[in-house]
Each structure stands twice: as C-alpha cells, then as structure tokens.
C-alpha cells in the first residue's frame, strides 16, 4: 500500500507543479542541503562571549529558569546542595552518566546521595550536563546519548543542569555548527529546552510544571573568578 501510495503521491506532486515551475531545481536542493547555511542570526545573539553569558542568564531567568553562577567545578556540589535545601527537596538525585561531570567533586558533599543512569518515575531530582547554552533565548541544547539519557530532562520535578561558560553560544545555529564539527552524527534526540514545563490551557493562565519539570535550575560554571551567587 505504502509503496503504491509513494509513487502516486510523488507523481501527483510532479504533475501538479509541472516540469518548469519557477525555482524547481534539483541541484539547488542538493546545494542547500550540503551548505546548510544559517539564514539570519539576530543581532541580539551576535555579541561578544562575555555579553552572551549575561544575555543567556537574563533570558533564562525571564522564562523562570533559575541560575546560580559558580567560579569552578569544585563549587558545584555545594551549589546543588544549597539549591535543594532552599527548596526543601531531598538531597537525593539521579546524575547523568556523563564523564564531563566527573571532574566535579561530588564526594565532598556526602549528604548528597547520587546514583547514575536514566531517570525513572520515582526520581524527583536529576542532574545533567548540557551540550550548549543558547544566549538568544536562554535555551539549553541537550543531546541524547549514553552519557545523557533523555528521561533525565523530562521525568523529574526538578532538573538541575551543570553548564560551563565556554559552552554558551549566541544563536541556535552555533549549537548545530558545533555538533557538526564534532562529527558524531545526529543523536536520537536533540532537545532545545527553554525554561521549565508550562501550560496555558486553562483560561490562558500560564502555570509552571505541566508534564515535565516544575523547576529548571542551572549551575553555571563561570570560571572567570566571578562571585558565587546562590
């Protein structure tokens, strides 16, 4: 059925368009796919890296993401523990099996009980890394893979993301460019996450915490000696 439908649909498309429809050009198709040019990057994103970090934080906070800026990896466990304590959350979390998080001295906070792997329904808090932070809209770019199961992003009530300053870029396209440059191919799931889950389906009142996380917290490793904020 599908094979037959495929031929019929393609034939109808060709017949409807006609061979000489203006702009019809298979080589242009190939060229566009090969070039994958960014079309227009808003000026907002075309700023220097320091300003991109500030814009990222500003835009993230605007959509109810919370951000704690820490000076180095060694401050991350404390920042996570403080965040959980502040929100009266148990100090138990599922940590992404991400080697990129291994330089964080989690053991220095023995009160923080961590296990690693994908998330299950019972996990109230997860901690993951992020492939990139997109300054333009305060968006996290999260790639699925053995180091980052996607359930960690979407199942828990609280998602904590450890983001490194050098991974903040201006625009979405820079995130894609970095992924291409790494040559690892397209992951199964690439999530652009902008704030915690929300819904406006009841009388257009925006409520945070629909099906996904109610809290999205970023611990930003600033690395330039800036003061720690909680």
């Amino acid at each position: 059925m599908s094979g037959d439908a495929r031929a019929r649909i393609l034939a109808t498309i060709r017949d409807s368009l006609g061979a000489d429809a203006p702009g019809r050009d298979e080589s242009a198709v190939e060229a566009r796919l090969a070039a994958h040019e960014p079309n227009l990057i808003p000026a907002r994103a075309r700023i220097d890296p320091g300003a991109q970090v500030d814009l990222f934080v500003e835009m993230a906070e605007e959509v109810s993401t919370t951000v704690a800026r820490v000076a180095g990896a060694d401050e991350v466990p404390g920042a996570v523990a403080d965040y959980l304590a502040t929100h009266n959350l148990p100090a138990v979390a599922k940590l992404a099996p991400d080697p990129g998080l291994d330089d964080i001295p989690w053991a220095e906070r023995p009160t923080l009980t961590l296990s690693r792997g994908k998330a299950v329904d019972e996990d109230a808090v997860t901690i993951t890394g992020a492939f990139a932070g997109i300054a333009e809209t305060g968006t996290l770019m999260l790639l699925s893979g053995p180091d980052h199961p996607t359930t960690l992003n979407i199942l828990p009530e609280t998602h904590i993301v450890v983001l490194r300053r050098e991974h903040i870029v201006g625009a979405y396209e820079e995130g894609w460019a970095r992924l291409r440059a790494e040559g690892r191919g397209m992951p199964r799931t690439v999530g652009f996450v902008t704030g915690p889950s929300r819904s406006a389906d009841i009388e257009q009142t925006i409520l945070i915490g629909a099906h996904g996380p109610r809290r999205l917290h970023i611990v930003l490793i600033d690395g330039d000696g800036e003061e720690t904020e909680a």
Partner: peptide, 10 residues
C-alpha cells in the same frame, strides 16, 4: 521568545 521544548527526533 521560544517554546519550552523544541525537540528534534531522529
């Protein structure tokens, strides 16, 4: 500015 979740599934 952007929806909360924009997900590319491949």
């Amino acid at each position: 500015e952007f929806s909360s979740y924009t997900t590319f599934a491949t």
